[in-house]
């Protein structure tokens, strides 16, 4: 095992991408993730890899699309307003089935909002954002360690399924430093017969999303559906933190989940049995596991740093079996341990 070092989230994600073998990184500056670009600008040329500051968020993501279409491990990173711009290429990448990795260190919105950490992009990133039927595979790390581990994993999974994997962090995770052990390379290698390398000794091939002929697009959509089902079956990740004996289950992700865990420890000290169910993949959403984890509980409380976006998926998963309450802090605020604790206490024993 590697050495435990104090690393800033943005640096840990960058280094994990390098360990994963990311050879091409393209991005446009935006706070609070600028340390990623700075890190890559410094390190990529030394490793004989490509760093390029693009003219726009849109161009950066299309450069990723182009490089990834040749089989390269390519990544871009940004924050909320920049991710909104990148949504265009997300749809093309999904339709053309190119593996790509994108990091979104969410900030407050809508519009320019502010530069604090926030969770207002759940709908944009988890529910699509671009046109058409598609999914991104979305990871929501809660610690710097998990950010590093999931960034590494994101490259493998992207190639395994030829899908865009998105790391959905926030400004706090981006800017905070925590102890972290950098992950080891996984050794995973995907065959890429689809990669554009010039039609030498094989028929020419095309990476595209346009399927105009009668019925062809529906067939392609069905193919994507099958792929998405396979991902739902194999790639769901979640954390069950003291849910088993709990009366109250807090459903929360990313930075908000850290506060909820502290609240659970507080509550347990007071003899209140609470737990945290934390989706780590937001798509695929751990609906089945969540339904099982909350079965027979008194109350579910969803806590987000937003006005309530994931809570819709929680309600669908719980399906009325248990009442679902919501506590949200939008605009770059972090919920306080006390306010979460008090909300749970308000349900009575």
């Amino acid at each position: 095992m590697g050495e435990r070092v104090l690393l800033k989230g943005n640096e840990a994600a960058s280094e994990a991408a390098l360990i994963a073998g990311c050879t091409h990184y393209f991005a446009y500056p935006i706070t609070p993730q600028n340390e990623i670009s700075a890190y890559m600008a410094k390190r990529m040329p030394k490793l004989n890899r490509t760093f390029l500051q693009a003219e726009s968020e849109i161009a950066a993501c299309n450069m990723v699309y182009g490089a990834a279409a040749t089989g390269a491990r390519a990544m871009t990173s940004s924050s909320s307003p920049g991710i909104a711009l990148k949504q265009e290429s997300f749809g093309y990448i999904a339709g053309a089935e190119v593996p790509a990795v994108v990091i979104n260190m969410m900030r407050g919105g809508p519009g320019l909002g502010n530069i604090s950490g926030s969770q207002g992009d759940y709908n944009m990133c988890v529910k699509g954002g671009s046109n058409g039927d598609f999914h991104n595979l979305v990871y929501a790390p809660a610690t710097v360690q998990e950010l590093a581990d999931l960034t590494l994993k994101a490259f493998d999974v992207a190639e395994k399924y030829r899908i865009l994997t998105l790391i959905l962090g926030d400004g706090y995770l981006a800017q905070m430093s925590e102890p972290c052990v950098l992950p080891e390379p996984s050794g995973f290698k995907a065959e890429k017969p689809w990669a554009l390398t010039g039609a030498e000794g094989r028929p020419a091939q095309v990476i595209n999303s346009l399927r105009l002929a009668d019925g062809v697009l529906e067939v392609h959509n069905r193919h994507l559906e099958e792929k998405y089902k396979a991902i739902e079956a194999a790639e769901v990740m979640f954390e069950n933190f003291h849910c088993d004996d709990a009366d109250f289950v807090l459903v929360t992700y990313g930075t908000a989940s850290r506060v909820c865990k502290a609240a659970v420890m507080n509550l347990r000290k007071q003899g209140i049995k609470a737990g945290v169910f934390r989706p780590i993949t937001l798509w695929p959403f751990p609906s089945v596991a969540l339904a099982a984890a909350v079965a027979g509980k008194k109350q579910v409380l969803t806590v987000e740093m937003s006005l309530g976006q994931m809570v819709a998926d929680v309600r669908l998963a719980v399906n009325g079996a248990v009442p679902v309450d919501f506590l949200g802090r939008p605009g770059g605020a972090v919920p306080m341990v006390d306010e979460v604790t008090e909300r749970v206490l308000s349900y009575g024993r």
């Binding site: 161009a59 299309n62 265009e88 290429s89 053309a96 091939q205 095309v206 595209n208 346009l210």
Partner: peptide
């Protein structure tokens, strides 16, 4: 008859 990739509108130079 060559390898091809389709770019989003206007993004061909970036791709």
């Amino acid at each position: 008859d060559v390898d091809g990739i389709e770019a989003p509108h206007g993004r061909a130079p970036a791709v």
